[in-house]
Amino acid sequence: MEPGAARQNREPGKGIGEMIVFVGNEEKGFFIRDVAKKQNLRAAFIRPSLHIKDQVGEILACQQCKYLVYDIEQYTDTGDVIAEEIRRIRMANNAMPVIYASGYNQQSDIVMFLKYKGIRNFIFSAYLADKKEDLEKCMLGTAELPEEDPGLEIQDKKRENENSLQKTIGIAGVIPRMGTTTQSVQFVKYLLFKGYKACYIEMNEHGWVEELADAYTATTNDPEIGKVTYQEVDLFYKLEKLPDVLKLGYDYYVYDYGVFSERGFNKVSFLEKDLQIFLVGTKPGEFMKTYELIENNFYNNVIYIFNFCREDKEEHEDTYELMGEKRNVTYFAPDCRDPFIFSNAPLYEQILPLKTAAGMERRNKRRGIFKRKKQMSKKKEQDIF
């Protein structure tokens, strides 16, 4: 076998025939073997890569490839880049692309881009038997393909990103009980303090918002959309209602992702956020996980907040040294006993410096008046000449 070629599983005595190739980690794609055997195909695997372009040569070198199953979680490329590359490969070798997107939201940007490029076969299931069934349906052409054309929706998303004030903040913890929920609420309180309309979204399976509603009578609960309001903070807990929440006109959405190593952690959704924050710690177990994050190439643009650390300048300086080149995106959170009492404006000002919403509004009004004055002056000049 030539160097770089896909590793293949072939039964002794059988000649070269059509095959199904899993592009990604073999430990994740092992389920294709059973499906391949059932369909009298060969199974092959192409090693994972952070960039799909680095795999193109190996993919195109696979002779008689009939199906290509892509694990999109391996990539750090943007959704439009991945979708375009998969489209080009399909045009080159005519193999059917199947997207392994176990645990992905079907409305996530990358899925929408893939659909937009005409790629409609997906494996969203989390359980082994269901993965095999989904793959077989894709291969046999019996999968329920999405009927909607995502083109308009993608254009709307682009327009929203260009014209809307809406910003997204994703917060995740390195281990359980790192204070992720507290910091998420604190960010909302900071934004409210600045005069912006902001809300909290429970992007995990902990059920904290509903527990809060059960524990305190001072909450208001709208079960239809999954909204609890407490101490002036709007908290949303029904992920299936997220598209409706995003239409409510908040300036900022703060997503609490829980623990990054949990099964339900949506890495792609987290990486799509405008501001990505990890809650980390200095204790032995905490820092080992923190170091894993620092070395992980997926998380190159994140901010690190050390929680539950002593107010000790010497200890902070030691931590900065350990963080190395991440020093400039490293912060220390103060002690916060009640998430609904805003505790430390300077910390959030450093991470997300904002003018007050009222000040921004006054500035925009001044710009509007100035623009109208310029238009009026221009009209007068036209009248004169």
Score class of each variant (00 low, 15 high):
I59V: 14
V56C: 02
Q63N: 13
L60W: 11
C65H: 07
G57I: 15
C65Y: 06
I59P: 02
L60Q: 08
A43V: 05
S49E: 01
I52N: 01
D34N: 06
K66N: 07
K53F: 12
A44H: 08
K66R: 07
Y67M: 09
K37E: 15
D34R: 04
C62T: 11
I52M: 04
E58H: 10
L50Y: 05
N40M: 07
V56P: 05
Q55W: 00
C62Y: 05
A44W: 07
R42T: 12
L41M: 13
I59E: 01
A43G: 05
R33F: 11
Q63M: 09
E58V: 00
K53P: 07
S49K: 05
K66S: 13
K37R: 11
Q64P: 12
Q55M: 04
Q63R: 13
A36W: 01
L41F: 07
K53E: 14
A61N: 13
A43W: 02
G57W: 10
A44V: 03
I59C: 08
I52V: 13
V35C: 06
D54M: 02
L60T: 10
Y67Q: 03
I59D: 05
V56D: 07
R47L: 08
K53N: 10
A36S: 05
K38I: 04
R42K: 13
A43N: 01
K38F: 10
C65G: 14
C65M: 15
K37M: 13
H51E: 00
C62V: 13
R33G: 11
C65E: 12
D54P: 02
D54W: 03
F45A: 00
G57T: 12
Q39W: 13
